[in-house]
Design a protein around this nucleic acid. Structure first.
Lengths: 92, 92
DNA sequence: GGTTGATACCTCGGAAGCCGAGGTATATGA
DNA sequence: TCATATACCTCGGCTTCCGAGGTATCAACC
């Protein structure tokens, strides 16, 4: 979900949480204690790149997808829909 | 998924794993170390009921949905589809 | 008689993820 | 001055997954 949110363009952690809440119509309310460690993990794995920015006195870490992140997102998106289809069969 | 599998009628653990694999066309391959503790958990929570059976020398624990299990399944099924819809938006 | 494979159950412990709680700091508006 | 929003972070408890290991039965084969 974090990777997908960044496909629309770079964003910082706090903003990613907002975008995710908006785009899911309030369904996904990720806690900060979930998101920040997850972003660090994704960067360590080479799927995200980050740079620091200061906007009106406040520092932000801006994340964007790396090339590997993009292809990983594409793969995981396919995996998700496969899982969702299987789930639909199981729940039917 | 375990609750959903049992909606078609009672079954024992080993059989549940098979049914899940069949109904998901091979997508869900749950390990025994996952399933047996999960079934115990669901029974402890009052969502499943079990009885022992012996078929040609082999003992089986047959599980079935309790009334609470049925209503919980209905609720979680709705929650799942809500999540899947939100996910679709996020991935779009 | 012994071996293999399928059936059928179980527990244990490492690894990973979620998130509430707590902490730091800045800008804005009442 | 105080609250609220913005913006980052870590820590530790809790839960779940599952590989590994264990037990036991039955059928088929050599």
């Amino acid at each position: 979900m974090l990777l997908a949110t960044l496909q629309g363009g770079p964003a910082h952690g706090y903003r990613i949480v907002e975008l995710l809440r908006e785009r899911s119509s309030g369904t996904f309310e990720l806690a900060e204690g979930t998101v920040y460690p997850a972003l660090h993990r994704l960067e360590r794995e080479g799927l995200l790149l980050s740079r620091w920015e200061v906007v009106s006195g406040r520092r932000r870490r801006i994340y964007r997808l790396s090339r590997r992140g993009e292809s990983t997102l594409a793969r995981r998106r396919r995996q998700w829909f496969e899982l969702a289809d299987a789930m639909k069969e199981v729940l039917a």
